[in-house]
Simulated scan of single mutants.
Amino acid sequence: MSVLVVIPARYASTRYPGKPLAQLRGAGGVSRSLIERSWLAACAVNGVDRVVVATDDDRIKSAAEVFGAEVVMTSADCANGTERCAEAHAALGGAFDIVVNLQGDAPLTPHWFVESLVEGLRSAPEAGIATPVLRCDGATLNSLLADRAAGRIGGTTAVFAADHRALYFSKEVIPFTSNAYAEGDRTPVFHHVGVYAYRPDALAAYPSWPTGPLEQLEGLEQLRFVENGRAVLCVEVTSRGRAFWELNNPEDVPKIEAMMAQMGLE
């Protein structure tokens, strides 16, 4: 099955304008843009046939072409990354069996997250979309709770049924737990990793569906699948000792830089 990875990137982010071009300093003081680091993460995934950056902004296009990325220009009317992926896939002929949306704010996404995701979707013909979830340890859960206590919108959490079909995603920390967890403890909370794998028919149908109240309230694009009765498969992945965090706010830059330094990522 052929696999396309699309990295949707827009300049006009409400929380962090110009985020794809934000510089992240890795080990050894090497500075690269967020979009370049996301592209490098995509290129490290095994079994991928093509990687493209999808954007509506000439500044992002120019920056991506400098480091060698293939760029697909998409409409400024795309409401989110999934719509941008649908437009990019259609522009490329719509011939891929699986389309992966590796969002441009997740440069620490390990290649095995995406590989497990693709394999999970291949093995679940009833699902039109799959997305990874990572069980929080105490340190990650405390970071999520600290963001909310400070009024910041940080990572997303997910709850799912016994068959791993998604029940809900939220920017709040769900499910509720009153326990205090130490740094390395396993917790009942799953961090949603912002990567998606779609079957072409589900991806093509997505832009035609209206934005539902849950998607609008949470600002989470994957809820449009849930609200339209499409099965979203949550694929549990493991960190293998590697730190993971997404760049949601400017305050996340030093945290991600520290993680890259710890992992020796230049």
Rank of each mutant, 00 (worst) to 15 (best):
I7F: 04
A12K: 14
S13R: 03
R25A: 09
G28F: 07
R37E: 01
R37K: 05
A41S: 08
R50V: 02
D58T: 12
I60L: 05
S62C: 14
S62H: 14
E70L: 06
V72R: 00
T74S: 06
T74P: 01
N80F: 13
N80Q: 08
N80T: 11
T82A: 11
E87K: 05
G93C: 12
G94C: 07
V100D: 01
D105A: 09
L108V: 04
F113W: 05
F113P: 01
S116N: 06
E119K: 10
R122L: 11
S123N: 07
P125T: 12
P132V: 05
C136N: 01
S143A: 15
L144C: 03
L145I: 14
L145P: 03
R148P: 05
A149F: 10
R152A: 04
T157L: 10
A158L: 03
Y168M: 07
F169G: 01
E172S: 15
P175K: 03
F176E: 15
N179Q: 15
T187Y: 13
H191W: 07
Y198L: 02
D201W: 11
L203I: 06
A205D: 07
P210Y: 07
E218L: 13
Q222K: 11
G229S: 08
V232D: 06
G241K: 10
A243Y: 09
A243G: 06
N248W: 07
E251Y: 11
E251R: 14
D252C: 03
V253G: 02
P254V: 12
P254G: 08
P254Q: 10
I256Y: 00
M263T: 08
E266M: 14
E266F: 13
